[in-house]
Design a protein around this nucleic acid. Structure first.
Length: 512
RNA sequence: GGUCCGUUCGUCUAGGGGUUAGGACGCAUCCCUUUCACGGAUGAAACACGGGUUCGAUUCCCGUACGGACUACCA
């Protein structure tokens, strides 16, 4: 009988969640849902110095926006809470001490200066990797080297100490990773990592193992940056006697910068012209805002789809997946091994696909919102018409309004390049006649109606419509290019079109 | 430096001992369009290198190169 699948996303609230973290969360979510398991959010706030207020809510808001809401979290706790490590503080010392009792960990009293001196001494002695390990620990101040009485005395006097894990001298540590297969590391390359810090808080390594065990985590899906410390984690499971329920590991390939080298970092923010955060993040100390995908106009379902394909693929040619389809298709076996460069052009393409798939009614509020920011109130009807006209031409919702604001705002200036090239006697002749016909027009004014009327006008004047078409567009929109002109006429209505044409005729006298 | 991980078109990737090495983004050309886009079609574009193993390696093995992660009382 296999256990219920339980996975966790465990960010530390040290700032805004970056997009790589979002992908990790997504993969965890997809995996959990695929197997009808639970997706847990655990806040790893054991580093008091780096704690950033607001980061927790940012994480929650980001996940909510993308629809990858945890089944258990600080905000909807399950049975294994609390879900913030700072609130689980008493547990960790207990577990660390159990290791000390078993002789698998020890107290260490070395000061920062002493540690630094040790590293310098080792470096001077040409030791390739100066570290606190099975060899050097015998020259340091710890419960392995100090007399028992002195250790007790130091502890009783309240002297600061840490608890370090005792890594075996010679041992091959084997670790199975679902993406990379078996990974072998020799314990001699590992150091005696700190488990409990002198402030009484656990380090990531201890807290992570204890919590994953206590929370019944079955699969650890996390970034590749954790692979080097995974052998230590395996060792800890063994030391605690939890090997039989040790989770499966899957270390995800990293998200890389699109330019140059290295992993995509928070600093890359707006440097590269695209966001690396899911939603806007305002830095309270500097007052600066790092932009997010949401505010840039990315639709959550598009970003989700894009993110899923960064390092994973379904094995066939399909690329457009709803969240439900992703859940159905997802598997750890199909996650790639190599790092993935972040290509914003593809994200944009996904956004276009999802934008076009939306109904005009769904898009209307976006148009109304943009208009309002611009200082205009427009009706739902107009907004829908604009959406219909522009959604196939743009990448982001806000561009629909930008593409068509001349519908609401009559042009006062005209594109000079188009004026000089296309504004001529023929155009003036056709437009003069057309505006008169529009004035006397009665009945429903559809796009085809507008077109028929324009065509017959040009014909009556003996002028090829194709020669003056751009001038017609110019007179009504002020521009040389844009959405289907006749559809625009239909939205404006005959009177408004006629009025604009007259304004253009007055504003643009023909040069003699 | 050390340990670990990786390497198919510019990018995301499929594939896998014998293939015209497939798709997508982007790019180019053409078609559609009385504009610009959308859409459609076509095209250019890749198995890092060197050794093995094999009748045959892009695919398996080893090495090299290159890239990346880690190397804190940070996660």
């Amino acid at each position: 009988m296999s256990r219920e699948v339980r996975v966790r996303f465990a960010p530390s609230p040290t700032g805004p969640l970056h997009i790589g973290g979002v992908r990790t969360a997504l993969y965890n979510y997809l995996f959990a849902k695929k197997y009808q398991g639970k997706f847990i959010l655990r806040i790893e706030d054991t580093d008091q110095a780096r704690y950033v207020p607001g980061a927790e809510m940012y994480i929650k808001d980001s996940l909510d926006w993308l629809g990858i809401t945890p089944d258990e979290s600080p905000w909807n706790p399950g049975a294994v809470g609390p879900y913030r490590q700072s609130e689980r503080k008493p547990d960790y010392m207990k577990y660390a001490l159990s290791l000390v009792e078993k002789g698998l960990a020890y107290y260490a009293f070395d000061t920062a200066e002493e540690l630094e001196a040790m590293r310098e001494r080792l470096t001077a002695a040409r030791v390739v990797q100066p570290q606190y390990n099975s060899i050097t620990r015998m020259q340091m101040k710890n419960s392995l080297t100090l007399p028992e009485d002195e250790v007790k005395e130091r502890l009783a006097s309240g002297e600061p100490y840490v608890i370090r894990v005792k890594i075996p001298r010679k041992e091959e540590v084997r670790l199975h990773d679902q993406i990379r297969g078996w990974v072998m590391v020799h314990s001699s390359t590992l150091d005696d990592k700190v488990l409990m810090k002198s402030d009484g808080m656990p380090t990531y390594h201890l807290a992570n193992i204890v919590d994953d065990h206590l929370m019944g985590i079955t699969h650890v899906i996390r970034g590749e940056e954790w692979l080097p410390s995974a052998p230590l984690h395996v060792l800890l499971y063994r030391y605690f006697g939890w090997e039989d329920t040790m989770p499966e590991f899957a270390h995800l390939p990293l998200l890389l910068k699109p330019d140059g080298n290295g992993k995509l970092s928070k600093r890359d923010g707006d440097r590269l012209g695209f966001p690396v955060f899911p939603i806007d993040w305002k830095n309270e100390t500097t007052g600066e805002t790092a932009s997010g995908f949401r505010e840039q106009g990315y639709l959550p379902e598009a970003l989700l789809n894009f993110l899923a394909f960064l390092g994973w693929n379904p094995g066939d040619d399909r690329e457009l997946f709803t969240k439900e389809e992703l859940i159905e298709a997802f598997s750890i076996e199909r996650i790639g091994k190599a790092g993935t460069k972040f290509d914003i052009a593809k994200a944009k393409w996904y956004n276009e696909q999802y934008l076009r798939a939306k109904s005009d009614a769904e898009l209307a509020p976006y148009v109304q919102g943009s208009a309002e920011k611009d200082g205009f109130q427009i009706s739902g009807e107009t907004a829908e018409a604009i959406a219909a006209l522009t959604k196939g031409r743009v990448s982001f919702p806000a561009e629909m309004w930008q593409e068509s604001r001349f519908i609401v705002i009559a042009p006062e200036k005209f594109d000079e390049q188009v004026v000089s090239k296309k504004w001529n006697a023929d155009a003036v002749q056709v437009l003069s006649a057309y505006q008169e016909k529009l004035d006397s027009f009665e009945g429903q004014f559809y796009a085809v109606t507008a077109k028929l009327l324009l065509e017959s006008t040009a014909e009556a004047e003996g002028i090829k419509l194709g020669k003056v078409m751009q001038a017609v567009r110019l007179s009504v929109t002020g521009l040389g290019a844009g959405p289907d002109l006749m559809e625009i006429f239909a939205i404006l209505g005959p009177q408004e079109v006629a009025r604009r044409i007259r304004f253009a005729l007055e504003s643009l006298p023909l040069a003699q």
